[in-house]
Simulated assay, not measured.
Amino acid sequence: MDRRPQITPWSAARLGTIFMDFAHEPTPSRLAEARLARQCLSKFWLSAPIDALELLYGSAVGDSYRQMIGGELASQPLLRDEEAWRDHLSERLFSGFDRPEMANILLAVMPYFRRGKMKVRNCEQNLPAWLLEDYASLFEPELLPRLRQPSPLERRALAPAGATRAVPAAAGAGARVSAAGAEPDAPPLPQLSSFTGAQALQLTGSEEFLTRLNGLVNLFEIDPDDGAIRQELGSFRRQLGQIWLDTPEDRLQPLFESPFGDLYRKFLRSGYAATPLAEEDRQLRSQLAQYVRNMTRPKATQVVLAVLPFYPPGKIGFAGGEQFMPQWLLGALPSLYVKN
């Protein structure tokens, strides 16, 4: 064992900043930084414990990784040593998917391939479920509609259980929240982000999370046509929604009145909600809106807070559902889209 180990300190937050800076302004110096950050993450996945990969992928390290593969770094020509690294990992990867380290190698090599330029045979059988959709988004987007279909169990849950008094949602981009009576079964709520439960709630006190979101909102207000900013804000919008979905009833008002709640309202007032939605976001919005067509359902208030950032001002209305909303939210609704 080397008595003089070389230790290079790094942080997921720093890597995320590097990829964000490169996306915003791809100068040669920022490209060089992004290349080194990619190498750092690639080596990290190779040494990560096999049984902790899913947990790590859902952590801040995974966030930085997804930010990288979702950007344009892979579209840059590879340096000679990067090509050699990619080819070596590819040879290991495609030698067989029955080895326990294959997920490590796949995570390490994916960032070195351009979109659509890598294909794993029988990916739905060979890839772990937690990685499959991100892989498909990059390399086999034609699989996404099938991957996002409800499972047979979810389809049974979505099937009508009998006549209800729910008011249909309005056509077009608007939605109506109804005060219809309770139903035997409520439709399942979608998962909006990889950070769920306790992990999602921890973000409400994360200085890194709040600072980054605040900076993105400020940048959007300066340049609302910047594609990279809009794309990253889309990820934050889904995370905001997931946080509200996972917040217990008795913590909703304190969270709404906290610095996190202030930033949530700033997000709504920024005008970002009026930008066109991607197809995935339209589907998520539709599922959330369908749920609050009946405000007597459990977690209806959480769902209202989660869905608001997906609707432009004036495009969500209420058809008697107000009587089931807490007063602290009802009183705030008129000002949520109004700048201070």
Score class of each variant (00 low, 15 high):
1 M>A: 14
332 A>E: 00
329 L>F: 10
126 N>I: 14
223 D>G: 11
231 Q>F: 12
278 A>R: 13
323 Q>L: 13
229 I>R: 03
163 A>N: 09
312 P>F: 09
248 P>I: 04
254 P>G: 10
145 P>G: 01
258 S>D: 02
68 M>E: 05
304 V>P: 02
147 L>E: 00
108 A>R: 02
219 L>M: 13
69 I>C: 05
211 T>M: 12
325 M>L: 15
80 R>G: 15
67 Q>K: 03
110 M>R: 03
304 V>M: 11
32 A>C: 10
291 Y>D: 13
21 D>C: 11
161 A>Q: 04
89 L>K: 00
215 G>E: 08
321 G>P: 01
306 A>L: 03
277 L>K: 02
318 F>G: 07
187 P>Q: 08
279 E>K: 12
272 Y>A: 08
4 R>V: 11
39 Q>G: 15
50 I>K: 10
260 F>S: 03
9 P>Y: 05
305 L>W: 03
214 N>K: 10
89 L>F: 01
273 A>Q: 10
71 G>T: 03
256 F>W: 12
274 A>P: 01
2 D>E: 11
145 P>R: 00
40 C>T: 15
202 Q>F: 06
260 F>E: 00
308 L>Y: 10
340 N>V: 14
235 S>V: 14
198 A>Q: 12
180 A>G: 15
300 A>E: 07
294 N>M: 14
207 E>W: 07
200 A>E: 02
288 L>K: 00
190 P>V: 05
298 P>Q: 01
206 S>T: 02
12 A>V: 08
335 S>G: 07
44 F>R: 06
93 L>W: 01
236 F>W: 09
204 T>D: 03
331 G>W: 14
263 L>H: 07
8 T>M: 15
148 R>H: 09
84 A>Q: 14
63 D>A: 11
195 F>P: 06
137 S>I: 09
333 L>M: 12
310 F>Y: 14
81 D>R: 12
303 V>K: 02
193 S>L: 12
164 T>S: 08
77 P>K: 04
133 E>G: 10
141 P>F: 03
320 G>S: 04
254 P>H: 04
235 S>T: 13
202 Q>N: 11
153 L>I: 05
304 V>W: 06
24 H>N: 09
220 F>P: 01
120 V>I: 06
126 N>Y: 13
303 V>E: 03
49 P>E: 10
179 A>T: 08
191 Q>P: 13
73 L>M: 11
8 T>R: 10
41 L>P: 11
40 C>L: 13
276 P>K: 00
242 Q>P: 05
264 Y>F: 05
332 A>W: 04
124 E>I: 09
312 P>L: 07
29 S>E: 15
175 A>L: 08
98 D>R: 05
85 W>E: 08
27 T>M: 04
203 L>M: 02
101 E>R: 07
142 E>Y: 04
194 S>P: 10
292 V>A: 03
153 L>Y: 08
280 E>F: 12
66 R>S: 10
66 R>M: 14
313 P>Y: 06
77 P>E: 03
277 L>P: 02
328 W>I: 02
260 F>I: 07
139 F>V: 08
268 L>P: 01
125 Q>R: 13
45 W>T: 05
14 R>V: 10
168 P>W: 01
49 P>T: 05
299 K>Y: 01
278 A>S: 09
277 L>M: 07
179 A>Q: 09
78 L>Q: 02
104 N>H: 12
240 L>W: 02
94 F>L: 00
90 S>N: 11
236 F>D: 04
107 L>H: 05
21 D>K: 13
37 A>N: 06
